[in-house]
Protein backbone atom coordinates (compact mmCIF):
# COMPACT_ATOMS: atom_id res chain seq x y z
CA UNK A 1 0.00 0.00 0.00
CA UNK A 2 1.33 3.40 -0.94
CA UNK A 3 1.56 6.39 1.39
CA UNK A 4 -0.27 8.70 -0.99
CA UNK A 5 -2.71 7.25 -3.46
CA UNK A 6 -4.30 9.27 -6.25
CA UNK A 7 -7.09 7.16 -7.70
CA UNK A 8 -8.67 7.93 -11.10
CA UNK A 9 -8.83 11.65 -10.42
CA UNK A 10 -10.48 13.85 -13.03
CA UNK A 11 -11.30 17.50 -12.66
CA UNK A 12 -13.32 19.89 -14.77
CA UNK A 13 -13.66 23.64 -14.25
CA UNK A 14 -17.01 25.12 -15.10
CA UNK A 15 -17.63 28.66 -16.20
CA UNK A 16 -20.52 30.31 -17.97
CA UNK A 17 -18.92 29.92 -21.39
CA UNK A 18 -17.18 26.60 -21.13
CA UNK A 19 -16.43 23.45 -19.21
CA UNK A 20 -12.67 23.02 -19.19
CA UNK A 21 -11.30 19.59 -18.52
CA UNK A 22 -8.19 20.20 -16.44
CA UNK A 23 -7.31 16.64 -15.42
CA UNK A 24 -8.28 13.31 -16.91
CA UNK A 25 -8.05 10.02 -15.07
CA UNK A 26 -4.89 10.53 -13.06
CA UNK A 27 -3.69 7.63 -10.93
CA UNK A 28 -0.42 7.47 -9.08
CA UNK A 29 1.09 6.12 -5.91
CA UNK A 30 3.78 7.77 -3.81
CA UNK A 31 5.73 5.99 -1.09
CA UNK A 32 6.62 7.55 2.23
CA UNK A 33 9.76 9.70 2.05
CA UNK A 34 9.64 9.91 -1.73
CA UNK A 35 10.21 13.17 -3.62
CA UNK A 36 8.11 13.57 -6.77
CA UNK A 37 8.15 16.40 -9.30
CA UNK A 38 5.32 17.38 -11.61
CA UNK A 39 6.42 19.07 -14.80
CA UNK A 40 4.64 19.87 -18.00
CA UNK A 41 3.59 22.71 -20.28
CA UNK A 42 1.41 25.42 -18.79
CA UNK A 43 -2.24 24.46 -18.66
CA UNK A 44 -1.55 20.82 -17.91
CA UNK A 45 -3.29 20.95 -14.54
CA UNK A 46 -0.23 20.47 -12.29
CA UNK A 47 -1.33 23.06 -9.79
CA UNK A 48 -4.92 21.80 -9.89
CA UNK A 49 -3.70 18.32 -9.01
CA UNK A 50 -1.61 19.74 -6.18
CA UNK A 51 -4.65 21.59 -4.80
CA UNK A 52 -6.67 18.37 -5.01
CA UNK A 53 -3.97 16.43 -3.15
CA UNK A 54 -3.94 19.21 -0.54
CA UNK A 55 -7.68 18.76 -0.08
CA UNK A 56 -8.38 22.34 -1.12
CA UNK A 57 -10.50 21.35 -4.13
CA UNK A 58 -12.84 18.41 -4.40
CA UNK A 59 -12.11 16.55 -7.65
CA UNK A 60 -14.98 16.05 -10.08
CA UNK A 61 -14.26 12.33 -9.98
CA UNK A 62 -11.87 10.02 -8.17
CA UNK A 63 -10.27 10.08 -4.75
CA UNK A 64 -7.04 10.93 -2.99
CA UNK A 65 -5.89 9.04 0.10
CA UNK A 66 -3.04 9.72 2.47
CA UNK A 67 -2.34 6.78 4.78
CA UNK A 68 -5.70 5.37 3.67
CA UNK A 69 -7.63 8.47 4.75
CA UNK A 70 -9.51 10.59 2.25
CA UNK A 71 -7.99 14.06 2.08
CA UNK A 72 -10.96 16.21 1.07
CA UNK A 73 -12.71 17.69 4.11
CA UNK A 74 -10.43 15.80 6.46
CA UNK A 75 -9.61 17.98 9.45
CA UNK A 76 -7.09 15.57 10.99
CA UNK A 77 -4.58 15.49 8.17
CA UNK A 78 -1.98 18.22 8.18
CA UNK A 79 -0.58 19.17 4.85
CA UNK A 80 2.26 21.58 4.20
CA UNK A 81 1.77 23.84 1.20
CA UNK A 82 4.38 26.26 -0.08
CA UNK A 83 3.49 28.78 -2.74
CA UNK A 84 5.43 30.68 -5.35
CA UNK A 85 5.67 33.62 -3.02
CA UNK A 86 6.13 33.40 0.71
CA UNK A 87 2.72 34.85 1.67
CA UNK A 88 3.94 35.72 5.12
CA UNK A 89 1.40 37.93 6.85
CA UNK A 90 2.98 41.40 6.80
CA UNK A 91 1.25 42.54 9.99
CA UNK A 92 2.57 39.58 12.01
CA UNK A 93 6.09 39.19 13.36
CA UNK A 94 8.22 36.34 12.05
CA UNK A 95 7.52 34.41 15.24
CA UNK A 96 3.75 34.90 14.90
CA UNK A 97 3.97 33.83 11.26
CA UNK A 98 5.85 30.65 12.10
CA UNK A 99 3.51 29.64 14.93
CA UNK A 100 0.35 30.54 12.97
CA UNK A 101 -0.33 26.98 11.86
CA UNK A 102 0.25 25.59 15.33
CA UNK A 103 -2.23 28.02 16.83
CA UNK A 104 -4.85 27.34 14.16
CA UNK A 105 -4.47 23.58 14.54
CA UNK A 106 -4.66 23.97 18.33
CA UNK A 107 -1.33 22.28 18.81
CA UNK A 108 0.95 23.26 21.67
CA UNK A 109 3.05 26.29 20.89
CA UNK A 110 6.43 25.68 22.47
CA UNK A 111 8.09 28.89 23.51
CA UNK A 112 11.33 28.06 21.76
CA UNK A 113 9.88 26.55 18.62
CA UNK A 114 10.21 29.62 16.41
CA UNK A 115 13.87 30.15 17.20
CA UNK A 116 14.60 26.43 16.82
CA UNK A 117 12.96 26.36 13.38
CA UNK A 118 14.71 29.55 12.33
CA UNK A 119 18.02 27.92 13.19
CA UNK A 120 17.01 24.80 11.24
CA UNK A 121 16.33 26.81 8.09
CA UNK A 122 19.60 28.65 8.49
CA UNK A 123 18.39 32.02 9.66
CA UNK A 124 19.61 34.17 12.55
CA UNK A 125 17.31 35.17 15.42
CA UNK A 126 14.81 37.35 13.54
CA UNK A 127 11.67 36.30 15.50
CA UNK A 128 10.73 39.83 16.49
CA UNK A 129 11.17 41.34 13.02
CA UNK A 130 8.48 41.89 10.44
CA UNK A 131 8.55 40.18 7.01
CA UNK A 132 9.28 43.43 5.15
CA UNK A 133 12.63 43.65 6.94
CA UNK A 134 13.79 40.38 5.35
CA UNK A 135 15.04 39.61 1.84
CA UNK A 136 13.08 37.40 -0.56
CA UNK A 137 15.24 34.36 0.09
CA UNK A 138 15.00 34.79 3.86
CA UNK A 139 11.24 35.20 3.67
CA UNK A 140 10.85 31.98 1.69
CA UNK A 141 12.92 30.26 4.38
CA UNK A 142 10.53 31.59 7.01
CA UNK A 143 7.65 30.26 4.91
CA UNK A 144 9.37 26.86 4.95
CA UNK A 145 9.70 27.07 8.73
CA UNK A 146 6.00 27.93 9.01
CA UNK A 147 5.13 24.91 6.87
CA UNK A 148 7.37 22.54 8.82
CA UNK A 149 6.20 23.83 12.22
CA UNK A 150 2.98 21.82 12.09
CA UNK A 151 4.90 18.63 11.20
CA UNK A 152 2.88 17.96 8.04
CA UNK A 153 2.41 14.44 6.64
CA UNK A 154 3.28 15.64 3.17
CA UNK A 155 4.82 18.76 1.67
CA UNK A 156 3.33 20.24 -1.47
CA UNK A 157 5.63 22.74 -3.17
CA UNK A 158 4.05 24.91 -5.84
CA UNK A 159 7.06 26.45 -7.60
CA UNK A 160 8.43 27.81 -4.32
CA UNK A 161 11.83 28.68 -5.81
CA UNK A 162 10.72 30.34 -9.01
CA UNK A 163 10.49 33.90 -7.69
CA UNK A 164 13.98 33.86 -6.18
CA UNK A 165 17.29 34.95 -7.64
CA UNK A 166 19.43 32.07 -8.90
CA UNK A 167 21.82 31.90 -5.97
CA UNK A 168 19.07 31.94 -3.33
CA UNK A 169 17.21 29.35 -5.36
CA UNK A 170 20.15 26.91 -5.39
CA UNK A 171 20.75 27.40 -1.68
CA UNK A 172 17.12 26.92 -0.79
CA UNK A 173 16.85 23.80 -2.95
CA UNK A 174 19.69 22.24 -0.98
CA UNK A 175 18.12 23.26 2.32
CA UNK A 176 14.68 21.87 1.47
CA UNK A 177 16.23 18.68 0.13
CA UNK A 178 18.30 18.16 3.27
CA UNK A 179 15.45 18.88 5.66
CA UNK A 180 13.05 16.55 3.85
CA UNK A 181 15.55 13.71 3.96
CA UNK A 182 16.34 14.43 7.60
CA UNK A 183 12.68 14.21 8.68
CA UNK A 184 11.85 11.54 6.06
CA UNK A 185 9.05 13.66 4.60
CA UNK A 186 7.15 12.93 1.45
CA UNK A 187 7.05 15.82 -1.00
CA UNK A 188 5.59 16.81 -4.33
CA UNK A 189 7.12 19.68 -6.26
CA UNK A 190 5.45 21.51 -9.13
CA UNK A 191 8.04 23.24 -11.28
CA UNK A 192 8.82 24.59 -14.73
CA UNK A 193 12.50 24.03 -14.23
CA UNK A 194 13.63 20.66 -15.61
CA UNK A 195 17.01 20.99 -13.90
CA UNK A 196 15.42 21.58 -10.54
CA UNK A 197 13.17 18.55 -11.02
CA UNK A 198 16.11 16.27 -11.84
CA UNK A 199 18.28 17.62 -9.06
CA UNK A 200 15.69 17.22 -6.32
CA UNK A 201 13.42 14.30 -7.20
CA UNK A 202 13.28 10.55 -7.04
CA UNK A 203 10.72 10.48 -9.83
CA UNK A 204 9.56 13.04 -12.35
CA UNK A 205 6.05 12.91 -13.73
CA UNK A 206 5.57 14.64 -17.05
CA UNK A 207 2.05 15.82 -17.82
CA UNK A 208 0.55 16.45 -21.23
CA UNK A 209 -1.84 19.38 -21.54
CA UNK A 210 -5.56 19.87 -22.21
CA UNK A 211 -6.74 17.76 -20.53
CA UNK A 212 -3.91 17.02 -18.11
CA UNK A 213 -2.79 13.41 -18.29
CA UNK A 214 0.30 11.57 -17.15
CA UNK A 215 2.46 11.41 -20.23
CA UNK A 216 5.60 9.79 -18.98
CA UNK A 217 7.37 8.97 -15.73
CA UNK A 218 11.14 9.35 -15.40
CA UNK A 219 12.97 7.48 -12.66
CA UNK A 220 16.09 9.26 -11.44
CA UNK A 221 19.07 6.97 -11.04
CA UNK A 222 20.20 6.12 -7.55
CA UNK A 223 23.58 7.88 -7.83
CA UNK A 224 21.99 11.23 -8.73
CA UNK A 225 19.34 10.86 -6.03
CA UNK A 226 21.98 10.47 -3.34
CA UNK A 227 23.57 13.82 -4.17
CA UNK A 228 22.37 17.20 -2.97
CA UNK A 229 20.61 19.22 -5.71
CA UNK A 230 23.67 21.40 -6.17
CA UNK A 231 26.01 18.45 -6.67
CA UNK A 232 23.47 16.63 -8.81
CA UNK A 233 23.64 19.38 -11.40
CA UNK A 234 27.26 18.54 -12.12
CA UNK A 235 26.76 14.76 -12.23
CA UNK A 236 27.52 13.04 -15.54
CA UNK A 237 24.01 11.60 -15.79
CA UNK A 238 22.33 14.98 -15.36
CA UNK A 239 22.75 16.41 -18.86
CA UNK A 240 21.49 13.40 -20.87
CA UNK A 241 18.37 13.18 -18.72
CA UNK A 242 17.85 16.93 -19.10
CA UNK A 243 18.06 16.59 -22.88
CA UNK A 244 15.64 13.69 -22.88
CA UNK A 245 13.00 15.51 -20.81
CA UNK A 246 13.55 18.72 -22.77
CA UNK A 247 12.78 16.93 -26.05
CA UNK A 248 9.66 15.31 -24.63
CA UNK A 249 8.44 18.71 -23.39
CA UNK A 250 9.14 20.31 -26.78
CA UNK A 251 7.16 17.57 -28.49
CA UNK A 252 4.20 18.11 -26.12
CA UNK A 253 4.12 21.83 -26.74
CA UNK A 254 3.81 21.44 -30.52
Amino acid sequence: MGFLIVENVSHTYFSKDAATEALQDISLTVEEGEFISFIGPSGCGKTTLLSIIAGLIRPTAGNVYIENQKVYGNKDLSIGYMLQQDYLFPWKTIEENITLGLRLLKQDVDRGIASKLLKDVGLPAVEKKYPRELSGGMRQRVALARTLAVDPKILLLDEPFSALDYQSKLKLEDLVFKMLKQYNKTAILVTHDIGEAIAMSDRIILFSPRPGRIHEIFEISEDIRRLTPFQARSHAGYSPLFQQIWKELERLEH
Binding site: A54, L56, K75, S78, I79, G80, Y81, L83, Q85, Y87, F89, W91, L100, G101, L104, L105, V150
Partner: peptide
Protein backbone atom coordinates in the same frame (compact mmCIF):
# COMPACT_ATOMS: atom_id res chain seq x y z
CA UNK B 1 -5.09 38.01 -2.00
CA UNK B 2 -6.67 34.54 -2.16
CA UNK B 3 -3.30 32.94 -1.51
CA UNK B 4 -3.34 34.18 2.09
CA UNK B 5 -6.59 32.27 2.48
CA UNK B 6 -5.00 29.24 0.80
CA UNK B 7 -2.22 29.29 3.41
CA UNK B 8 -4.82 29.40 6.19
CA UNK B 9 -6.90 26.66 4.54
CA UNK B 10 -3.95 24.29 4.58
CA UNK B 11 -3.94 24.80 8.35
CA UNK B 12 -7.64 23.86 8.40
CA UNK B 13 -8.68 27.38 9.43
CA UNK B 14 -12.38 28.05 9.99
CA UNK B 15 -14.14 30.89 8.20
CA UNK B 16 -14.02 33.02 11.34
CA UNK B 17 -10.28 32.42 11.66
CA UNK B 18 -9.78 33.41 8.02
CA UNK B 19 -11.66 36.63 8.70
CA UNK B 20 -9.73 37.38 11.87
CA UNK B 21 -6.25 36.40 10.66
CA UNK B 22 -6.30 37.65 7.07
CA UNK B 23 -9.36 39.51 5.82
CA UNK B 24 -9.72 42.07 8.60
CA UNK B 25 -6.06 42.96 9.22
CA UNK B 26 -5.36 43.14 5.49
Amino acid sequence: DANYLKVLQTFNATKWQMFKEAILPA
